Amino acid sequence: MESIITPQPHRLVSSGSEHPVQSSTPALAGTSDGGSSPPSHHLSTPEEISSFVDQMDTFIFDCDGVLWLGNDTIKGAPEFLHELVAKGKRIIYVTNNSSKSRKTYVGKFKKLGFPAEPDNIFGSAYAAAYYLKNMLNFPADKKVYVVGMQGIVDELAEMGIQAVGAGDDNAPLQETEFENGTLGPDESIGAVLLGFDSQINYRKYAKAFTYLTANKGKVHFLATNEDRTYPISGSIYPGTGSLLAALIHSVNRRPDAVLGKPSQNMMNTILERFHLDPARTCMVGDRLDTDIAFGKLGKLHTLLVMTGVTSVEERDAKKGPVTAEYWIESVGHLRQR
Protein backbone atom coordinates (compact mmCIF):
# COMPACT_ATOMS: atom_id res chain seq x y z
CA MET A 1 0.00 0.00 0.00
CA GLU A 2 1.38 3.38 -1.00
CA SER A 3 2.25 5.77 1.79
CA ILE A 4 1.24 9.41 2.00
CA ILE A 5 3.92 12.08 2.35
CA THR A 6 3.08 15.05 4.49
CA PRO A 7 4.78 18.02 2.79
CA GLN A 8 7.95 19.11 4.53
CA PRO A 9 9.06 22.06 2.42
CA HIS A 10 12.71 22.21 1.43
CA ARG A 11 13.67 18.85 2.96
CA LEU A 12 15.29 17.84 -0.33
CA VAL A 13 18.44 19.83 -0.80
CA SER A 14 19.64 20.53 -4.31
CA SER A 15 23.08 19.12 -4.95
CA GLY A 16 24.37 22.28 -6.56
CA SER A 17 23.62 24.70 -9.32
CA GLU A 18 26.16 23.56 -11.89
CA HIS A 19 24.96 21.35 -14.74
CA PRO A 20 27.15 18.57 -16.10
CA VAL A 21 26.22 19.49 -19.64
CA GLN A 22 25.40 22.83 -21.17
CA SER A 23 21.69 23.15 -21.83
CA SER A 24 20.50 23.71 -25.36
CA THR A 25 17.42 25.54 -24.11
CA PRO A 26 17.32 29.23 -25.08
CA ALA A 27 17.76 31.71 -22.28
CA LEU A 28 14.63 33.25 -20.84
CA ALA A 29 14.09 36.86 -21.75
CA GLY A 30 15.39 39.25 -19.17
CA THR A 31 17.40 36.66 -17.25
CA SER A 32 20.41 35.88 -19.40
CA ASP A 33 22.45 38.84 -18.24
CA GLY A 34 22.49 37.88 -14.58
CA GLY A 35 20.13 40.72 -13.64
CA SER A 36 17.58 40.51 -10.86
CA SER A 37 14.38 38.58 -11.55
CA PRO A 38 11.00 39.47 -10.03
CA PRO A 39 10.47 37.52 -6.78
CA SER A 40 7.89 34.73 -6.72
CA HIS A 41 4.60 35.50 -4.99
CA HIS A 42 3.66 33.17 -2.14
CA LEU A 43 0.07 31.95 -2.37
CA SER A 44 -0.67 32.03 1.34
CA THR A 45 -4.32 32.91 1.91
CA PRO A 46 -7.57 31.13 0.93
CA GLU A 47 -8.60 34.21 -1.05
CA GLU A 48 -5.38 34.27 -3.06
CA ILE A 49 -5.55 30.54 -3.77
CA SER A 50 -9.20 30.73 -4.85
CA SER A 51 -8.50 33.67 -7.17
CA PHE A 52 -5.46 31.89 -8.62
CA VAL A 53 -7.40 28.68 -9.39
CA ASP A 54 -10.33 30.59 -10.88
CA GLN A 55 -8.01 32.38 -13.35
CA MET A 56 -6.88 29.10 -14.92
CA ASP A 57 -8.65 26.77 -17.34
CA THR A 58 -5.80 24.25 -17.54
CA PHE A 59 -3.17 23.00 -15.10
CA ILE A 60 -0.08 21.16 -16.38
CA PHE A 61 1.55 19.13 -13.61
CA ASP A 62 5.00 17.65 -13.34
CA CYS A 63 4.82 14.37 -11.42
CA ASP A 64 7.95 13.36 -9.49
CA GLY A 65 8.44 15.79 -6.63
CA VAL A 66 5.06 17.44 -7.27
CA LEU A 67 2.35 14.77 -6.99
CA TRP A 68 4.48 12.00 -5.54
CA LEU A 69 7.99 10.93 -4.56
CA GLY A 70 8.52 7.40 -5.84
CA ASN A 71 5.37 5.59 -4.68
CA ASP A 72 4.69 8.05 -1.86
CA THR A 73 1.83 10.45 -2.56
CA ILE A 74 2.13 14.09 -1.56
CA LYS A 75 -0.57 14.72 1.05
CA GLY A 76 -3.69 16.31 -0.41
CA ALA A 77 -2.52 16.13 -4.04
CA PRO A 78 -5.05 13.54 -5.34
CA GLU A 79 -7.91 15.34 -3.60
CA PHE A 80 -6.95 18.70 -5.10
CA LEU A 81 -6.79 17.29 -8.63
CA HIS A 82 -10.22 15.75 -8.22
CA GLU A 83 -11.44 19.18 -7.07
CA LEU A 84 -10.06 20.67 -10.28
CA VAL A 85 -11.90 18.09 -12.38
CA ALA A 86 -15.12 18.86 -10.48
CA LYS A 87 -14.63 22.56 -11.33
CA GLY A 88 -14.32 21.72 -15.03
CA LYS A 89 -10.58 22.38 -15.22
CA ARG A 90 -8.39 20.47 -17.66
CA ILE A 91 -5.49 18.49 -16.17
CA ILE A 92 -2.39 17.51 -18.15
CA TYR A 93 0.54 15.56 -16.76
CA VAL A 94 4.04 16.20 -18.11
CA THR A 95 7.00 14.18 -16.90
CA ASN A 96 10.64 13.86 -17.90
CA ASN A 97 10.77 10.37 -16.43
CA SER A 98 11.07 8.06 -19.44
CA SER A 99 11.10 4.77 -17.54
CA LYS A 100 7.36 4.20 -18.08
CA SER A 101 5.05 4.49 -21.08
CA ARG A 102 1.82 6.49 -20.93
CA LYS A 103 -0.23 3.31 -20.61
CA THR A 104 1.89 2.13 -17.69
CA TYR A 105 1.69 5.56 -16.07
CA VAL A 106 -2.13 5.42 -16.11
CA GLY A 107 -1.95 2.43 -13.77
CA LYS A 108 0.30 4.32 -11.37
CA PHE A 109 -1.86 7.45 -11.43
CA LYS A 110 -5.01 5.51 -10.68
CA LYS A 111 -3.34 3.38 -8.01
CA LEU A 112 -2.25 6.55 -6.22
CA GLY A 113 -5.70 8.08 -6.57
CA PHE A 114 -5.19 10.58 -9.40
CA PRO A 115 -7.60 11.07 -12.33
CA ALA A 116 -5.79 10.09 -15.53
CA GLU A 117 -6.12 8.73 -19.06
CA PRO A 118 -3.32 8.07 -21.60
CA ASP A 119 -4.30 11.09 -23.70
CA ASN A 120 -3.59 13.62 -20.94
CA ILE A 121 -0.15 12.20 -20.08
CA PHE A 122 2.91 13.54 -21.90
CA GLY A 123 6.14 11.78 -20.99
CA SER A 124 9.57 12.38 -22.45
CA ALA A 125 9.55 8.83 -23.88
CA TYR A 126 6.40 9.64 -25.85
CA ALA A 127 7.84 13.01 -26.90
CA ALA A 128 10.96 11.28 -28.26
CA ALA A 129 8.93 8.68 -30.17
CA TYR A 130 6.65 11.39 -31.57
CA TYR A 131 9.68 13.43 -32.68
CA LEU A 132 11.28 10.48 -34.47
CA LYS A 133 8.06 9.55 -36.25
CA ASN A 134 6.64 12.95 -37.14
CA MET A 135 9.59 15.33 -37.25
CA LEU A 136 12.41 13.13 -38.53
CA ASN A 137 10.24 10.76 -40.61
CA PHE A 138 12.41 7.98 -39.21
CA PRO A 139 12.90 5.26 -41.88
CA ALA A 140 10.96 2.05 -41.32
CA ASP A 141 14.03 -0.06 -42.10
CA LYS A 142 16.17 1.61 -39.41
CA LYS A 143 16.37 0.88 -35.68
CA VAL A 144 16.80 3.05 -32.60
CA TYR A 145 19.45 2.02 -30.10
CA VAL A 146 17.98 2.76 -26.68
CA VAL A 147 20.04 3.55 -23.62
CA GLY A 148 17.05 3.53 -21.31
CA MET A 149 14.19 1.46 -19.97
CA GLN A 150 11.04 -0.26 -21.18
CA GLY A 151 8.94 2.91 -21.30
CA ILE A 152 10.95 4.18 -24.27
CA VAL A 153 10.75 0.84 -26.07
CA ASP A 154 6.97 0.71 -25.58
CA GLU A 155 6.40 4.26 -26.88
CA LEU A 156 8.60 3.61 -29.92
CA ALA A 157 6.63 0.42 -30.63
CA GLU A 158 3.38 2.42 -30.47
CA MET A 159 4.79 4.59 -33.28
CA GLY A 160 5.86 1.53 -35.30
CA ILE A 161 9.58 2.16 -34.69
CA GLN A 162 12.01 -0.70 -34.10
CA ALA A 163 14.11 -0.50 -30.93
CA VAL A 164 17.13 -2.46 -29.72
CA GLY A 165 19.27 -2.23 -26.61
CA ALA A 166 17.50 -1.17 -23.38
CA GLY A 167 16.84 -4.23 -21.20
CA ASP A 168 18.45 -6.60 -23.70
CA ASP A 169 21.83 -5.03 -22.93
CA ASN A 170 21.69 -5.09 -19.14
CA ALA A 171 24.31 -7.87 -18.87
CA PRO A 172 27.85 -6.81 -17.86
CA LEU A 173 30.36 -6.52 -20.70
CA GLN A 174 32.92 -9.30 -20.99
CA GLU A 175 36.54 -8.55 -21.97
CA THR A 176 36.33 -10.94 -24.94
CA GLU A 177 33.60 -8.83 -26.51
CA PHE A 178 36.08 -6.10 -27.35
CA GLU A 179 37.70 -8.53 -29.79
CA ASN A 180 34.83 -10.63 -31.19
CA GLY A 181 32.95 -7.87 -32.97
CA THR A 182 30.00 -7.63 -30.56
CA LEU A 183 30.58 -3.90 -30.16
CA GLY A 184 31.18 -3.16 -33.84
CA PRO A 185 29.23 -0.76 -36.10
CA ASP A 186 25.69 -1.66 -37.15
CA GLU A 187 24.35 -0.13 -40.36
CA SER A 188 20.75 -0.78 -39.26
CA ILE A 189 21.02 1.76 -36.42
CA GLY A 190 19.58 5.12 -37.43
CA ALA A 191 19.42 6.81 -34.03
CA VAL A 192 20.73 6.60 -30.48
CA LEU A 193 18.22 7.65 -27.82
CA LEU A 194 19.29 8.07 -24.20
CA GLY A 195 16.82 8.27 -21.32
CA PHE A 196 16.78 7.43 -17.63
CA ASP A 197 18.32 4.00 -17.06
CA SER A 198 18.72 2.46 -13.61
CA GLN A 199 20.61 -0.42 -15.27
CA ILE A 200 23.05 1.68 -17.28
CA ASN A 201 26.40 -0.02 -17.86
CA TYR A 202 29.54 0.05 -19.97
CA ARG A 203 28.00 -2.19 -22.65
CA LYS A 204 25.33 0.41 -23.41
CA TYR A 205 27.77 3.31 -23.39
CA ALA A 206 30.19 1.41 -25.67
CA LYS A 207 27.51 0.52 -28.20
CA ALA A 208 26.05 4.03 -28.23
CA PHE A 209 29.56 5.48 -28.66
CA THR A 210 30.30 3.13 -31.58
CA TYR A 211 27.06 3.84 -33.42
CA LEU A 212 27.47 7.61 -33.08
CA THR A 213 31.13 7.72 -34.09
CA ALA A 214 31.35 4.99 -36.74
CA ASN A 215 28.78 6.62 -39.01
CA LYS A 216 29.23 10.31 -38.28
CA GLY A 217 26.36 12.41 -39.49
CA LYS A 218 24.23 9.38 -40.34
CA VAL A 219 22.97 8.48 -36.85
CA HIS A 220 20.68 10.84 -34.93
CA PHE A 221 21.63 11.55 -31.31
CA LEU A 222 18.60 12.20 -29.07
CA ALA A 223 17.95 12.47 -25.34
CA THR A 224 14.71 12.44 -23.38
CA ASN A 225 15.84 15.18 -20.98
CA GLU A 226 18.79 16.72 -19.16
CA ASP A 227 17.57 16.58 -15.55
CA ARG A 228 20.68 16.61 -13.39
CA THR A 229 19.04 14.80 -10.47
CA TYR A 230 16.22 12.30 -9.86
CA PRO A 231 14.08 12.70 -6.70
CA ILE A 232 12.57 9.55 -5.22
CA SER A 233 11.32 8.53 -1.77
CA GLY A 234 12.74 11.56 0.02
CA SER A 235 16.20 11.41 -1.56
CA ILE A 236 17.85 12.60 -4.75
CA TYR A 237 20.09 10.62 -7.11
CA PRO A 238 21.79 11.21 -10.49
CA GLY A 239 19.29 11.99 -13.23
CA THR A 240 19.26 11.51 -16.99
CA GLY A 241 21.39 14.59 -17.60
CA SER A 242 24.15 13.11 -15.45
CA LEU A 243 24.03 9.85 -17.42
CA LEU A 244 23.98 11.78 -20.68
CA ALA A 245 27.08 13.78 -19.72
CA ALA A 246 29.35 10.75 -20.07
CA LEU A 247 28.16 10.04 -23.61
CA ILE A 248 28.41 13.68 -24.66
CA HIS A 249 31.95 13.86 -23.36
CA SER A 250 33.08 10.65 -25.06
CA VAL A 251 31.60 11.39 -28.51
CA ASN A 252 32.36 15.12 -28.26
CA ARG A 253 28.89 15.95 -29.53
CA ARG A 254 25.70 17.30 -28.02
CA PRO A 255 22.36 15.64 -28.78
CA ASP A 256 20.65 16.82 -31.94
CA ALA A 257 17.51 17.29 -29.85
CA VAL A 258 16.47 17.00 -26.20
CA LEU A 259 12.76 16.18 -26.13
CA GLY A 260 11.64 16.62 -22.53
CA LYS A 261 11.21 19.77 -20.44
CA PRO A 262 12.19 22.55 -20.87
CA SER A 263 12.37 21.85 -24.62
CA GLN A 264 9.46 23.42 -26.44
CA ASN A 265 8.97 20.40 -28.72
CA MET A 266 6.72 18.92 -26.04
CA MET A 267 5.05 22.26 -25.25
CA ASN A 268 4.14 22.91 -28.90
CA THR A 269 2.58 19.47 -29.18
CA ILE A 270 0.49 20.06 -26.04
CA LEU A 271 -0.68 23.54 -27.06
CA GLU A 272 -1.66 22.40 -30.55
CA ARG A 273 -3.33 19.19 -29.45
CA PHE A 274 -5.55 20.80 -26.79
CA HIS A 275 -5.85 24.30 -28.31
CA LEU A 276 -4.82 25.82 -25.00
CA ASP A 277 -4.81 29.51 -24.14
CA PRO A 278 -1.38 30.12 -22.53
CA ALA A 279 -2.82 33.09 -20.62
CA ARG A 280 -5.18 30.72 -18.77
CA THR A 281 -2.79 27.80 -18.35
CA CYS A 282 -0.42 27.16 -15.43
CA MET A 283 2.64 24.93 -15.26
CA VAL A 284 3.11 23.40 -11.79
CA GLY A 285 6.52 21.95 -10.97
CA ASP A 286 9.30 21.52 -8.44
CA ARG A 287 12.29 22.35 -10.66
CA LEU A 288 13.21 25.85 -11.73
CA ASP A 289 15.52 24.83 -14.58
CA THR A 290 13.08 22.40 -16.23
CA ASP A 291 9.46 22.72 -15.06
CA ILE A 292 9.36 26.48 -14.49
CA ALA A 293 11.58 27.23 -17.49
CA PHE A 294 9.30 24.99 -19.57
CA GLY A 295 6.28 27.03 -18.57
CA LYS A 296 7.92 30.42 -18.97
CA LEU A 297 9.28 29.61 -22.41
CA GLY A 298 5.76 28.56 -23.38
CA LYS A 299 4.41 31.87 -21.96
CA LEU A 300 2.32 30.08 -19.33
CA HIS A 301 1.73 31.03 -15.71
CA THR A 302 4.09 29.14 -13.40
CA LEU A 303 3.74 27.73 -9.88
CA LEU A 304 6.66 26.26 -7.92
CA VAL A 305 5.98 23.69 -5.19
CA MET A 306 8.54 23.04 -2.47
CA THR A 307 8.17 19.25 -2.18
CA GLY A 308 10.89 18.41 -4.70
CA VAL A 309 14.45 19.47 -5.42
CA THR A 310 14.36 23.28 -5.23
CA SER A 311 15.81 24.77 -2.06
CA VAL A 312 14.63 27.95 -0.32
CA GLU A 313 17.85 29.67 -1.37
CA GLU A 314 17.30 28.81 -5.03
CA ARG A 315 13.67 29.87 -4.88
CA ASP A 316 14.50 33.25 -3.34
CA ALA A 317 17.67 33.96 -5.34
CA LYS A 318 17.42 37.51 -6.68
CA LYS A 319 19.77 36.75 -9.55
CA GLY A 320 18.62 33.25 -10.36
CA PRO A 321 18.30 32.38 -14.06
CA VAL A 322 14.63 31.41 -13.62
CA THR A 323 11.98 32.41 -11.09
CA ALA A 324 8.41 31.16 -10.80
CA GLU A 325 5.47 33.56 -10.90
CA TYR A 326 4.00 31.92 -7.78
CA TRP A 327 5.09 29.43 -5.16
CA ILE A 328 3.35 27.33 -2.52
CA GLU A 329 4.42 24.68 -0.03
CA SER A 330 2.73 21.79 -1.86
CA VAL A 331 -0.06 20.92 -4.28
CA GLY A 332 -2.08 19.84 -1.26
CA HIS A 333 -1.96 23.40 0.09
CA LEU A 334 -4.07 24.48 -2.89
CA ARG A 335 -7.11 22.56 -1.66
CA GLN A 336 -10.25 24.59 -1.00
CA ARG A 337 -11.12 24.23 2.68
Rank of each mutant, 00 (worst) to 15 (best):
Val144Leu: 06
Val309Ala: 05
Ala324Val: 04
Gly217Phe: 11
Glu47Thr: 08
Thr6Asp: 09
Glu226Ile: 13
His19Ala: 12
Glu272His: 08
Ile74His: 07
Thr224Gly: 09
Val251Ser: 00
Ile91His: 11
Pro26Gly: 02
Tyr126Ser: 03
Ser36Gly: 05
Pro139Cys: 02
Ala166Pro: 02
Glu187Gln: 11
Ile91Asp: 09
Ser32Gln: 03
Lys319Asp: 14
Glu187Pro: 01
Gly16Cys: 04
Gly65Pro: 02
Lys216Asn: 11
Val144Ala: 09
Leu334Val: 03
Leu244Thr: 03
Gly35Ala: 08
Arg253Leu: 14
Gly70Leu: 10
Tyr326Lys: 01
His41Asn: 05
Asp119Leu: 07
Phe114Lys: 04
Gly234Asp: 08
Ile49Pro: 02
Ile92Lys: 13
Thr104Asp: 15
Arg102Gln: 14
Met149Glu: 15
Val164Tyr: 08
Glu272Phe: 00
Ser36Cys: 10
Ser198Gln: 11
Ala129Asn: 04
Lys261Arg: 10
Leu173Val: 15
Leu300Gln: 06
Gln150Leu: 11
Lys89Trp: 12
Met283Ser: 05
Ser233Ile: 03
Ser3Arg: 11
Glu325Tyr: 01
Lys216Ile: 14
Asp256Ala: 12
Ile248Asp: 04
Gly167Tyr: 14
Gly320Glu: 09
Thr269Leu: 13
Ala208Phe: 06
Asp64Thr: 02
Arg335Ala: 13
Asp72Ala: 14
Val66Asp: 05
Ile60His: 05
Asp57Arg: 12
Pro278Gln: 02
Asp62Asn: 07
Asn252Gln: 15
Pro278Phe: 06
Pro238Trp: 03
Ala293Met: 10
His301Met: 06
Lys218Trp: 02
Ile74Phe: 09
Gly295Val: 04
Leu300Val: 06
Pro39Glu: 05
Ser263Glu: 10
Tyr126Trp: 15
His19Cys: 04
Lys87Cys: 05
Gln150Pro: 01
Met135Cys: 12
Gly165Lys: 12
Ser36Thr: 11
Asn97Phe: 04
Tyr131Asp: 03
Ile152Ala: 05
Thr269Ser: 02
Thr73Tyr: 03
Thr302Leu: 03
Ile236Ala: 11
Gly260Asp: 10
Ser36Trp: 00
Glu177Pro: 01
Trp327Ile: 00
Leu222Ala: 07
Pro262Asp: 12
Gly76Gln: 13
Glu2Lys: 02
Gly151Trp: 03
Gly298Lys: 03
Lys133Arg: 14
Gln199Leu: 11
Leu84Ala: 15
Thr45Ile: 01
Ala157Asp: 13
Val146His: 09
Leu67Val: 10
Thr95His: 01
Glu79Ala: 13
Gly285Ile: 08
Ala279Thr: 15
Ile60Pro: 01
Glu272Gln: 14
Gly190Asp: 13
Asp227Pro: 02
